[in-house]
Each structure stands twice: as C-alpha cells, then as structure tokens.
Amino acid sequence: MTTNELTRGPVLPAPASGYRSRPAKKRRPGTSRISSLRALVWVLPAVLMLAVFVYLPLAQNFGFSVLEWDIYTGSQSFIGAENYRKMFADPVFWHALANNAWYSVISILFQVCGALVLAALVEGLRHDRWKQIFRVLYFIPSAISLTVAGLLFYFIYEPELGLLNAGLERLGLGDLTQSWLGQENTAIFAIIAMSQWQGFGYCTLLFAVALQRIPSELYEAASIDGVGPVRRFFSVSLPLVREMTGLMMIVTVSGAFQVFNEVMVMTTGGPNNSSQVLGTWLYRSGFVRNDFGYAAAIATAIFFITLSLALLQLWISRKRRVEW
C-alpha cells in the first residue's frame, strides 16, 4: 500500500457504514421538517462533483474504448471491439498485468503480513515512548512522496554511483552488483522493493492502531494461562484483526493494480517494457504511441479488476461485525 492509497481510505468499509446508518436513522425520526427537496442542497455539491468529474468520465471511457482516435486531428471512428482484441493479443499488456500481480503478491507479503507482525512486535514493547518512536520512524517514508522516494531509489540503484552496489561491494558481495533498474529481470522487483520501503510504515501504523483496540483483559487472561508471546499473537491478536487483515489485503491488491507514479519516475516501464504496469502502459499507449482508443481499453481492464476487488471487499465486510 502506498500513500496515494490514502485516497481510497485505510480500509474501505463503504457498505459496512451503509448498514450502520440504520440505527442512526432511528435516532433521528422527524427531526427534519424542512421540505425534503430543499434538503437536497446538502448532498448536491458532492454528488454533482462526483457525477461530472468522476462518473461521467468513467462512462465516457467505455465509449472511447471502441474508437480509433487520432490525437493530431482529433478525428474518431468506431472500430467496435478491435481495441480489446488488440489488447488481448498484446504481450506487453499481459506482461504489465503480471507485473501488477507481482506487485500485489509481494505487497501482501510485506505490507500486510510483514506489517502485522511488525505492529505486534512494536506494540509488544514495554515502553510507550519507544512504541511511539518506532511507529513514527517507520511511517516517515510514507509521508514523503512516491516521486521523491522513486528518485531517491533511482540513485540508490544506479549501477555506478549508487548506494546499493557500493554497499554490496563493501560487504564482499561484489558478485551481486548489477544495474537493478536496467535489467529486464530485476527492474520491476527493484521498483516493488522501493514501494515496500515506502509503504510498510503506513500499514504498520494501521495495524498498530487496530491492535491497541484489543481489550487488554484478553491479553491478561492469556498470560495467566501461561501463553507465550508467539502463541498469544496467533491465538489472541490474529483472530481479532483477521477481518481487518482481509480488508487490508484487498485494498493493497487494488492499489497494486493502480501503480503508476513510481514506475514512471524510475524506469518509465523500461528496459524493453519489462517494468511496464497497466497504468504506465495506458499512459504510454495514449500519450506516446498516439493511441487513445487503446489506452481507454486498458483503462476498462483496470476498471473491471479494481471493481471486482472492491466487490470482494464488500462481501467480506458484510460478514464482519463480530469483533470488538
């Protein structure tokens, strides 16, 4: 997960809160005597902004994806499913999709599983002061932008003046030095690694907050039973944050399919399109290869992927409501 996903909310409980509104409704019967239509004034600014600048373009995108579109003249002609046919036959599209998938898998490993364990370790410390220091320290990379982090890691990975190769040399691991962003088999993983560095603190913070909400009596009961810290993590902490972990996974995966910034800054998808992800391939198809219709088709693919993840999330959050 990355700072950009702050957009999407730490965890997306859209429906959960939707259901919660029911008891709230009961609490305010008849408090409003204002003409009900005039009351629309309250929601219209938000709804209109969204309708015009979020939903309308979304709808237009489907229309654009069936066009051949010349960026120079602006002329458009209908070509049906041709862009989609081209997309399914495009090896770079599939490669980009695979890179997004790698992004999700690795992010789940580090930013969900890793961050959860890390949060448990930090919260297990005895001194509140240190807990706070670690939480803040780990979060700092998430506060700096992906652009800054990307540029910084470009220099860290640079084969000649970079920190990483120089460090490996010093450790006597000179054999491992390479052009991290310049090789087809390492470029995307070097970017993903940077993204873990940048984002793990954010997830750790989220888990730390969740762990704090677990009533301390549960821990005390466990310790009376003579349960060690490792087992306590598995038998007390984990079950209580399991639902949240599930949601975090989906948010992380959904974010992984929207990656753009760091790839653009670090490799622009190269070398030989090896680090291309859907977002950058969309951009390159539209703005470099002049094919806006095709770019819109890629956008449709991103839409359906993120939509199905969001629906999965809804389904999961519908099931929760048990814990704390």
Partner: peptide, 8 residues
Amino acid sequence: APTVALIP
C-alpha cells in the same frame, strides 16, 4: 481508480 477516468 483515477487512471480509468484519465483519457476522458
């Protein structure tokens, strides 16, 4: 995802 709306 904001990318989806980019071109329009």
